[in-house]
Amino acid sequence: MADDKSNAAEYWKANVRLIFGCLVVWAFVSYGCAILFRPILANIPVGGTDLGFWFAQQGSILTFIVLIFFYAWRMNKLDQKFGLGE
């Protein structure tokens, strides 16, 4: 029972770490590249405009998709590793 508990706590910690990492990327592409850092990225041209604009209207959405699938894939591995999957 004690083992089960520490095992489960370990699983939850790993999950929270993974979420934190994913959300850093999530915030970086949307609030960062697309909004706050746009002036810094203004010199990188992308098809008639700049990289910040591309992130705001395309890049962040594409990154979001990758993030969710990455998270789902890593969590499946965690579920298996800790024997908590179904």
């Binding site: 994913c22 959300l23 999530w26 697309a34 705001a56 209207q57 962040s60 979001f64």
Partner: peptide, 17 residues
């Protein structure tokens, strides 16, 4: 652009949180 990012980025937090 806030509409585009807001209405898609919500799914990231929905999926994880």
């Amino acid at each position: 652009s806030g509409f585009l990012m807001g209405w898609t980025g919500g799914y990231v937090i929905l999926a994880m949180l």
